[in-house]
Design a protein around this nucleic acid. Structure first.
Length: 551
RNA sequence: GCGCCCAUAGCUCAGAUGGAUAGAGCGUUGCCCUGCGGAGGCAGAGGUCGCAGGUUCGAAUCCUGCUGGGCGCACCA
């Protein structure tokens, strides 16, 4: 609907150019959007405001001139008016609205999806937690965010690879092994030494107990490597289970170790060195970060000869770019702020094109219970895992709540609200709208009322109520919204849009009886609510939230 | 000290590349079911858009400075 109207309005400009009233130059970036209030029409444009200087007129006169250069198109607009400082307001014709409804009924759940991405390959890297413990609430936000982004990109015609990058070597894993071994010996009642910075969590003891069950005291003399392998497997299995529960499936688990094995870490060192981007100091190899917009230089190979994490991270990103992705989306928590800068600086030093990489840093999550923050952190006793959160409020609420905020804003997760099965809970509010429509459709069928399946059976001309027109206009915006959400990589926009749709529907439902006394009106309204239902179903699927037929 | 992010109603937050009278939810006050699911709806009160400048026809939005909060600034990842 909108592109058609925009094209129509652009004719006014062409008309003026033909008459020599306007120089033939590129149009400024003008807009045609739904105004805040319906009194201002179905669409409003700032075209005249922007062209006024070129027309050498005040904006209202410019608007007048533009309108006088438009052919009448009753099939598109009922009327147009000039308002405020010089906006052009359009009032859409019933015919155009009918056409829009027809498209929605035809496309159903695919309405909103597009091929805009043209099959471009996108890699989305997220979670990427090392197997040292269960996923936390923070990982949860990232998991849900990453998956929703992937879904949005898929819906807009991109080919998406969901990727998880992890490291099962190094200091952290040694600590994990030592912690597990200590707990194991403890469980056997043997003398043990718990590592100073070991993992305190309850889960380590549970893993140790499992070893006791399976092996008895047979592992008492074993070296830590054995415990590492066991603990890692157990933890990773747990992580996958958690992700599975959320409905998140990764296409690729990329192991950092492989970057050492195939020599690509060494290649990075050699290349940086040959480009003169490194120097040696205090027995370590330093990267000249300050030459690449960093605030200080960074160590890339420690004096012990071991690389720091930056090096494999750089190698990993080179690997991603080599795999031919058109876009690489990295999702990190706020605490990784500086590391991604290091990596990007490294890539620039290596001569890589970093413009294909989009980095999203999401802020932290605070759990609220009785209005008070719940303390989290692996060392505290009331450490809350993602699993526990899912258990507490359910998958739908977890996903919905995590997506209800912009990624760069802190997120307060209200546990009490998420658990409520009532109107106060936004998840239920949206799902209820869907279920309510399902119920009406069931009721219609039970009563022998024909449910229209296409525009022809709808008697759409019966949709004359303001509520109905407004609802159609809201639905019409859906594909545009999805597109913008995907381009901006901002899934939260879908959430707010769905709340808007649900609100409009509930209001309509209360004011207008869908199964009315008049067969044609009923058909028309059944057509409309089916369109509402498709859009809600589609929107919820972008978020990974269920659309229930009954609640 | 330096860098990134945030600051909008009592609370939690939207606000599309600058547009008309700044919007929701919760909370609060008052209303609405003869029939499709009240897990709903309607109405009211509630704002110096953190502060101060600047840019222009026009700023919550862009620029500069400040204030307050979060997160970083390892030869840990």
């Amino acid at each position: 609907m909108r592109p058609k109207l925009k094209e129509f309005l652009a004719e006014a400009v062409h008309g003026c150019v033909r008459k020599g009233l306007l120089p033939e130059e590129e149009l400024p970036d003008w807009q045609l959007e739904p105004p805040k209030t319906r009194e201002h029409g179905d669409y409003a444009s700032n075209l005249a405001l922007l062209l006024a200087p070129r027309l050498k007129k005040n904006p209202r006169e410019a608007a007048q001139l533009l309108l006088s250069n438009l052919p009448p198109r009753p099939d598109l607009v009922d009327r147009m008016e000039i308002a405020g400082p010089g906006f052009i307001n359009l009032f859409v014709s019933d015919a155009l609205r009918r056409e829009a409804l027809g498209e929605m009924l035809e496309r159903r759940a695919s309405f909103g999806c597009s091929a805009r991405g043209e099959g471009r390959q996108v890699e989305v890297e997220f979670v990427s937690a090392n197997p040292t413990g269960p996923l936390t609430i923070g990982h949860g936000r990232q998991a849900v965010l990453g998956d929703a982004i992937a879904r949005l990109l898929e819906a807009t015609g991109h080919k998406v690879t969901r990727e998880y990058y992890y490291n099962d070597a190094g200091r952290q894993m040694k600590l994990l092994a030592a912690s597990t071994r200590a707990r194991y010996l403890e469980a056997l009642g043997k003398p043990s030494e718990f590592p100073e910075e070991g993992y305190q969590g309850e889960y380590i003891a549970e893993i140790a107990n499992r070893i006791v069950e399976q092996q008895g005291d047979a592992w008492a003399g074993e070296d830590p490597e054995r415990f590492k392998v066991f603990a890692e497997e157990a933890i990773f299995a747990g992580i996958r289970e958690t992700l599975d529960r959320l409905g998140i499936i990764f296409d690729v688990y990329f192991n950092e170790t492989s970057l050492y094995e195939d020599g690509s870490v060494q290649t990075i060192i050699d290349t940086l060195r040959s480009k003169g981007c490194t120097y040696e100091k205090d027995g370590a190899l330093w990267f000249r970060g300050t030459d690449f917009d960093l605030d200080k230089d960074r160590v890339i190979v420690k004096s012990t000869g071991e690389p720091t994490y930056r090096l494999p991270d750089m190698a990993y990103h080179v690997n991603k770019l080599r795999r031919g992705f058109d876009m690489v989306v990295d999702i990190f928590g706020a605490d990784h702020e500086s590391t991604y800068r290091d990596v990007l600086a490294g890539l620039r030093a290596l001569g890589e094109d970093t413009s294909r990489i989009r980095v999203l840093i999401h802020q932290f999550v605070t759990l609220l219970k009785d209005g008070q923050p719940v303390r989290m952190g692996k060392r505290t006793a009331n450490f809350v895992t993602l699993d526990e959160l899912i258990e507490e409020v359910g998958v739908d609420a977890v996903r919905f709540f995590f997506l209800q905020r912009r990624h760069d804003a802190h997120l307060d997760f209200d546990l009490d609200l998420a658990k409520k099965e009532s109107d106060e809970n936004p998840v239920y509010y949206v799902q209820y709208a869907y279920a309510r429509i399902a119920s009406v459709l069931r009721e219609a069928e039970a009563g022998g009322v024909a449910v229209p399946s296409s525009l022809d059976e709808c008697h759409a001309e019966r949709l004359v109520e303001e509520d109905e027109k407004a609802l159609i206009h809201l639905l019409v915006e859906y594909p545009e919204l999805v597109d913008r959400a995907a381009t901006a990589i901002e899934p939260h926009r879908v959430v707010f849009y769905l709340l808007d749709v649900a609100r409009s529907f509930h209001g309509y439902y209360n004011r207008c009886r869908i199964l009315s006394d008049d067969a044609e009106t009923t058909a028309a309204r059944l057509g409309l609510v089916q369109a509402v239902q498709s859009v809600i179903a589609s929107g919820l699927s972008m978020l990974g939230v269920r659309a229930p037929e009954r609640m």
